[in-house]
Design a protein around this nucleic acid. Structure first.
Length: 313
DNA sequence: CCAGACGTTGTT
DNA sequence: GTCTGG
DNA sequence: CCAGACGTTGTT
DNA sequence: GTCTGG
């Protein structure tokens, strides 16, 4: 399957400019991991393909918060059409994730051996994905929101603001704070209030806890742009790939990528693209476990430690 | 995906 | 948002 | 009706 | 074992 990615910014952007005339804003990262930002391709009604920056961990539009409670960086192609989290994206919000290559770990008795998988003579692999847009007001149960129209897409591709949203933490540990705040309070509650303030100390504490819990995400999304996020589709491994791992990403050719991004195409006609196929010319390169740690971002992640193999598509 | 934490009190 | 389980 | 899940991989 | 962070 697919949990780590290599982005060679220069090669990738040049290639995509040539191919789809779209501008990709990416930075070098030889070890990009789930919850980080990715540039993905989306299709417009006019057939034009454009890029958008998204968090690699799909947050459904109805989610209460953009947590990592569920594994959403991959979606099984076999069930994407029906799963609650993915079916709407599958119908209307497909994307293609262009990568320079990705990593796969082979498990054996000795442990885990990482491999770098890339195209021998092209600068990119096209991986099929899905995306969604989330904002606190659509997912959170905010009083007074009557947004039942079911269409909350963001058409404006404000990637800078989204980048800010994606790069921040999204944790909730208010539970503990609430408890300690109450427990430490002396029995005598009476305290002098500033003029004009009518709240008791206890109320104001509760208030700050609640507003903390809510504003945590509103700062990221409501005040900025909706959070755009994406996931990579996986399928059963092609026999040639199965030697390494029993799952693999859904690979698309450039032409298939165009199909995949066609807005109103029937999902039925896309079915064949989800099969266990490999592009012709994949290379399999054993690399060091240096890549295991997602903080290592440099080219040493890509360095071969043995013979490369060709995968027969 | 893998690595690393997993806890509290008190002090600055 | 939508479905399943109680 | 309301509450709670909604996901993947891998391992046994 | 399980969750969070990268």
């Amino acid at each position: 399957m697919c949990g780590r990615i290599n982005i060679d910014a220069r090669r990738l952007t040049d290639y995509l400019t040539d191919l789809f005339a779209c501008e990709l804003a990416v930075a070098d990262d030889a070890n990009l991991s789930p919850t980080q930002s990715l540039a993905v391709l989306r299709g417009g009604a006019d057939g034009q393909i454009s890029a958008a920056e998204m968090r690699w961990w799909l947050t459904p539009h109805w989610a209460k918060a953009p947590t990592t409670e569920y594994s959403m960086f991959n979606a099984k192609a076999e069930t994407a059409a029906t799963s609650p989290a993915f079916r709407r994206p599958y119908r209307r919000q497909r994307c293609v994730i262009p990568v320079s290559g990705y990593y796969e770990w082979q498990r054996d008795d000795n442990g885990k051996q990482p491999f770098y998988i890339y195209h021998a003579d092209r600068p990119a692999l096209f991986l099929a994905g899905l995306w969604d847009a989330w904002s606190a007001s659509s997912g959170n149960a905010v009083a007074g929101s009557r947004d039942s129209s079911g269409k909350a897409q963001s058409t404006a591709a404000g990637s800078a603001a989204i980048q800010a949203a994606c790069s921040d933490k999204t944790t909730n540990m208010q539970e503990r704070r609430r408890q300690t705040a109450g427990a430490d309070r002396p029995l005598d509650e009476t305290q002098p209030m500033p003029p004009g303030v009518t709240q008791t100390p206890r109320q104001s504490e509760l208030w700050s806890d609640v507003s903390e819990a809510q504003s945590e995400h509103q700062q990221q999304s409501d005040l900025l742009q909706p959070l755009l996020s994406c996931t990579l589709l996986t399928t059963a491994a092609h026999p040639s790939m199965a030697r390494i791992h029993h799952r693999q990403p859904v690979f698309l050719t450039e032409h298939e990528a165009q199909q995949w991004l066609t807005p109103n195409i029937t999902t039925e006609s896309l079915q064949p693209l989800l099969a266990s196929r490999l592009p012709h010319g994949l290379n399999l390169r054993p690399v060091s476990t240096y890549v295991n740690n997602a903080r290592q971002k440099g080219p040493r992640c890509l360095q071969p430690i043995g013979e490369e193999r060709k995968l027969t598509g």
